[in-house]
Design a protein around this nucleic acid. Sequence first.
RNA 1: GCCACCUUAGCUCAGUUGGUAGAGCACCCGUUUUGUAAACGGGAUCGCGUCAGUUCAAAUCUGACAGGUGGCUCCA
Length: 605
Amino acid sequence: MKPASEKTSLEHKRHTLAHLLAKAVLSFSPDAKTTIGPATENGFYYDFEFPLNAESKGASATLMPGAKASISEKDLPKIEKKMREFLHEWHAFTHIEVSPADARKIFAGNPYKLELIDGIVERKEKITLYTCGEGESEFTDLCRGGHAEDPSKEIPVNSFKLTHIAGAYWRGSEANKMLTRIYGLAFETKEALDQHETMVEEAKKRDHKKIGREMGLFTISPLVGAGLPLMQPKGMVIRNEISDFLWNLHKDKGYSRVWTPHIAREELYVMSGHAAKFGDELFRVQGKEEKFIMKPMNCPHHMQIFADNQFSYRQMPVRYFEPATVYRDEKSGQLGGLTRVRAITQDDGHLFCSVAQIEQEVATIVNVIKEFYAPFGLMKEYWVSLSVRGEDRSKYLGTDDVWNTAESSLEKAAKANNLPYKRVEGEAAFYGPKLDFMFKDSIGREWQLATIQCDFNLPERFDLSFTNDKGLKERPVVIHRAISGSLERFMGIIIEHYAGAFPLWLAPTQVKIIPIGEAHHAAASAAHTALVAAGVRSELCLGNEGFGKLVRQAKTDKIPYFVVIGDKDLAASAVTLESRDKGNLGQMKAEEVVAKLAEEIERKG
RNA sequence: GCCACCUUAGCUCAGUUGGUAGAGCACCCGUUUUGUAAACGGGAUCGCGUCAGUUCAAAUCUGACAGGUGGCUCCA
């Protein structure tokens, strides 16, 4: 962690650059309306309304000669250059406090600033104007402060860069007008800026969409539709490995597999509340006589499976597991790759227990999560968010008693399992508290994946009960849990985590057998057969490609192992094994290769 | 959905001021049978996202639509 002061100073510089950006844009488009311009994680942005945002497209506004009515990415270098010019003249900020009336007069033509002023007045805060620069570069903006002391000295001219333009709704709401947002990057030094850009490049290289296409893992067909990825054979191998692994972790822990259809009557979701919650994200299916809904969640179905039984406390907890595909009609602009899709397969599970059993059940799930994430190397750096109620208790469903027990059960389970957790007030869902697991991938990006959620709502809505030891009906608690989150998203994340170089147990092709010449084909086939018989995904090369080319293909395809068989090997009645990660491992007997790979696959090494 | 940008062979991409398209890889056919990152020769493949318009003539200009990429919490 950086010292707070340093971080703050960089934020100040970024915010200063937002002002500078606004000024530079105004020098080209005096009619643009300025709105807001904060610092961001890696830089800054400023939102503008350009005259053509305001009017209908194609309308020719009356503009000053040379003035821009709208903007495109081609204009960024020009604006950037202007910012650098003005920066030399920006030596210190001065600020004055103004009355609401004066402020409204100054920003009379700018509805956005007027709205901001109203907000400030409402919050009973002071209105301040900050000015920097002189002559042509002078710029004043409504601002609460927080700038570089002397921008011209503190901000190196090459430490920032305008990157792209995007649309952004005023105050993030679709109901509002869309503004033009100009994004910039800014760091302390040019070196830090370069470093950041290198990191972005690296992330781009391991983009799962790119690797998925190159390695033939999955495909997206415009004819099938956006957000509906199709698994190629190689991608399906990975998906199956993940999904089998998940079930293996559950089957000896009292879970039962269930299966539910993909459509259901609308009433189910009205009763569960999902119809209201998902609204227009539901896919509707018109049957001959009745309307159905593609399931957006599995929970209501699992509730019905439970409800069909008369469980006694002796049978509790009841645990269901189903990797199930659910469908959500996401907005077309939100779709892409495997991570933002319309059909996702959750490794869903629901368990039904008494309030007293929550702690034990959560502990079991935590163990499953640890066992699942360890082979991926994701247990090294992670944290857990314990989401509990906020102050306004009226927002939450269920009695204080039940909530207190559930919250403390989650916390106890987190403590008992040494989870690095943070208690986050007010983050709980209205129906119950939860534990969310955040993992860091190999290039430091954080992902929210596993989740354990208590639910007091669905048992209520579906009137679920079991018979307790006093012979009375008792309401169970439902625990929703997902380990990987969704198979598609998890696959996308590990493709990027490994940059396509999957560990042996996940690799679509685990080993490639390369005979040097025709004289070695028989031995190669024998080795291949032995590997396949041991359950290893082996690929045999008997074509007429040159040796060098086959090696090259094995490397570019990131295959974990390849076996070479030539005269030297025949003479020693052995084969040569080479590992992607460890290089040439030398000669060994074919049986040894089989045993070594089988063992490594077994322990997911 | 909205904003910006993009859309040329399976992939990556080139196509000067409009005159009906190419390269590398991959693919197919031969020859070569090879010891650690691309053997050699030959061949087929796109009519330039779709539709409409301007023009004697459009991949190149205009418009609409579709698909893709990035963005739409980070509140002066």
